[in-house]
Design a binder for these strands. Structure first.
Lengths: 346, 346
DNA sequence: TCTGAAATCTGGAGCGCTCCACTGTCGCGC
DNA sequence: GCGCGACAGTGGAGCGCTCCAGATTTCAGA
């Protein structure tokens, strides 16, 4: 009976400490695997006493369900993939809110970031490989619709801009409203030469651009419309600042692509001896944790990150559970926050 | 031979588009699953022609290996888990460099962030549940060693501070060197009243604190040593600034916990009418993408993010492949970058 | 022609889990 | 005393993959 050739020892801490499996818990509690599974998932079908016993055994073994196996067995992962850019503070804001929103609906969240040498495609590939059932794209190139087209295989929600592919949801800020408020504010202060630094392919930029044009026209400032090509980062702001400085005659106000761009612009202008907001007023966009700090103190358009996160998650999950909904578009609120970088023109 | 009752149709796009499995690829290519597996993993054992055929079939079906199943079958996930804080720009910097470093060693990276309502414990739990084989902790509370102690079950590398648990690797900046350079710089400018805002439980803070003390003593400034409790964010900087302002007599220089703290401090001081660097010089720590921008233009200690990332990944993987190495400590370089927030005292 | 080794390919077991169909055991009403 | 439903618990199949131990073919060398 004991001619055991098998080493029966309790996982000797040799190399790999051997993670406890459900079967281990079952043995220890003296029940079947199935029952352990039921108890741990908090489902009915187990007696109170047994339940106690199983929980205790699991605890003692430091058992931790293997989500890979769960996925495989369930055929579902209950996991949402989020594609983000680590450098965009606004993304951080949204992701922070995605976690609880997803948890509440019983979903897990996997993050994947774009990085140098790791493009959207690779990053989403990783997500898909890990069996994310749906994707929330905080970053997505509107031109190569490739990423977004994944929507064909996986429910996808694009954040920050309108989706261009049918069957893909989109959650974005009411850019028109935000931009209008910004332009109204500047115009009310008496500004006329209000230029806009464009966010390039960044999310929301296209909408902000056209909203800017529309708002300018509303103020009968169509002649003053000017869009400087840019991007959503500090460098773009600096470049735009240099450009403006080189032209000799400055506008009296600038609506930047986002906060980062605004900060770069402010840097460039101030370095060039320009007083902000005395000579030039600047309005940002995002209201990340930077804008209200430092003596940056930026007037900016606040986006509703928690709301965006919540809608993105909800849309993804609904699409997951329903199947084939038409592509929906959700607009979240935008609100101008006036701080210290705007003032009447000289 | 063709009494096929099986509906042989190509995956009708019904509800779930049904992801292609390895068996599908095998059928289509007319080979066994095993062979498909071999080919796709680029292992020897398949003829050139067959290989071609399999690759083509996989391509056509849009096949994508299911990493959950792979993990399960392999018993290994080849995945590294990274615990980070989305708000810490320095973390972003490190993570960006972790991706390529891990990829080069054939490892996948999973990100998990702490967020309100999602503490270290939950975040690492998620990583472990997804079968990460090793953890890189960019955030870790040195007091509750709980997180770090995971090292017992999973190879762990703590970034940014010394590990306090045996068998856990640590990769951090040569804080002593960085801080010494900062203090030297200030002392050389003629400063004597140099206070330090402490980073609290943040990574590296303990070391920076003691390095500050040591550096001050080296300059025979022991009597001037003063550490203000703080944290690694803007709020802490603001709080420290308010505190200093309320005291009436300001120090002539401040070494902040990190860049964010420095920015907050600068904000508070300038709001209080203090000239930086005229009245007070400020030195930060990190050199994220903020410090050299805006008219922040912060003198700061640069940490070597790519180096840190590379070492962290390498240590984790080595420990993974070797088993039981002693805990190692790797120091990466630090270098003072002098910009515009430091000047001789009045 | 036979042997044997290399090259190519196959089937089955099994990773840790969930789900389904099933077996016992009660207790209760008729 | 019998049937019946509710509850407690079990065992096996199978998720998509990798690995192991063969099976089959090919071809050189004796």
């Amino acid at each position: 009976m004991d001619e055991a050739l098998e080493p029966q020892q309790e996982a000797a801490p040799k190399g790999a400490p051997q993670r406890a499996t459900m079967a281990d818990v079952a043995t220890r509690a003296g029940v079947s695997r199935t029952l352990v599974s039921l108890v741990l998932r908090d489902r009915p079908g187990a007696g109170a006493a047994t339940r106690e016993r199983v929980l205790k055994a699991a605890e003692e073994l430091g058992y931790r369900p293997d989500s890979a196996a769960q996925m495989l067995a369930r055929g579902r992962s209950r996991t949402l993939g989020v594609l983000m850019n680590l450098e965009q503070p606004f993304h951080a804001e949204v992701v922070k809110a995605i976690y609880p929103a997803a948890a509440q609906l019983g979903y897990d969240v996997l993050l994947s970031a774009v990085a140098p040498g790791r493009d959207e495609h690779m990053a989403t590939g990783a997500l898909l490989g890990h069996r994310c059932e749906a994707l929330v794209l905080l970053v997505s190139d509107p031109e190569s619709h490739a990423t977004e087209r994944l929507g064909g295989s996986v429910p996808t929600v694009v954040v920050g801009r309108k989706a261009t592919t049918p069957g893909v949801d989109s959650v974005h800020t009411a850019e028109a409203k935000g931009v209008r408020q910004a332009v109204d504010h500047l115009a009310d202060l008496g500004h006329r030469r209000i230029v806009h630094i464009d966010g390039g392919k960044g999310p929301g930029s296209a909408d902000r651009r056209s909203a800017y044009r529309a708002a300018m026209r509303r103020h009968r400032l169509a002649d003053e419309i000017r869009v400087i090509p840019g991007a959503q980062d500090e460098d773009a702001g600096i470049a735009a600042g240099m450009l403006l400085l080189s032209e000799g005659e400055l506008p009296t106000a600038v609506l930047a692509a986002n906060d980062r761009c605004a900060i770069g612009l402010m840097h460039a202008l101030r370095s060039g001896g320009v007083d902000v907001p005395g000579d030039v007023s600047i309005v940002g966009y995002d209201d990340g944790n930077l804008s209200h700090l430092s003596h940056i103190n930026l007037t900016t358009v606040r986006q509703d990150a928690p709301g965006i996160a919540e809608h993105a998650v909800r849309n993804a999950v609904e699409r997951l559970e329903n199947g084939s909904l038409p592509g929906r578009e959700t607009e979240c609120d935008a609100k101008l926050v006036v701080r210290a970088t705007t003032a009447p023109p000289r």
